[in-house]
Amino acid sequence: MKKVLILAMLIPLALMLVNCGGGKPKAKMQEIPEWYLNPPQAEDVIYEAGDAAKMSMALAKEASDARARDGISRVIEVKVSNMLKNFMQQSGLGEDAEALEFTSSVSKQVANTVLRGCRIAKREMKTEGSQYHAYSLAEYNLNSLIQETLNEAKKQKALYNEAKANLSFDDLEKEIDKLEAIGE
């Protein structure tokens, strides 16, 4: 009975080794969409590609879409800070001393923006073993960005005009009179 049990436990293990061995499968080059390797370029549109491999197709799609959109947001508004450090270290004494030179660099990119009308124009889903590999191409039309900026400028101008209309010269003079009265 024990032997049967051990055998029963070993069969799945063997299957697992046969089927799952060899680590994570990699995408075949010919299966990678051309637009992922060479995203289209245009003067008035920003394109950024993203990809993700997950066991769940829905998750793979979410991750690759998010990465493609993140690429767009980083192109639009990126604050980059770089830091470079050089270390010189010496250990030991006299002629036996060993000098070590160590260079370290840190770069940090921070992006925070609201994307309006940024769409996933193309998407492809490939299977790699038991995983789904999603490729997404995000597209952001700069005309919509310009329009957005213009709309914002119009709003600001309207607010300014409204404030100006509410604040007449008479009111201003009264305010000045008040201030002068306090000064006396």
Partner: peptide
Amino acid sequence: EYARFDLGKNIEIEAESIHTVQRDD
């Protein structure tokens, strides 16, 4: 449901990210 949420993302989405790359020898 996912299609509806996907449509929402294509209308407006707030995107924030911090990427750091640390390199040494």
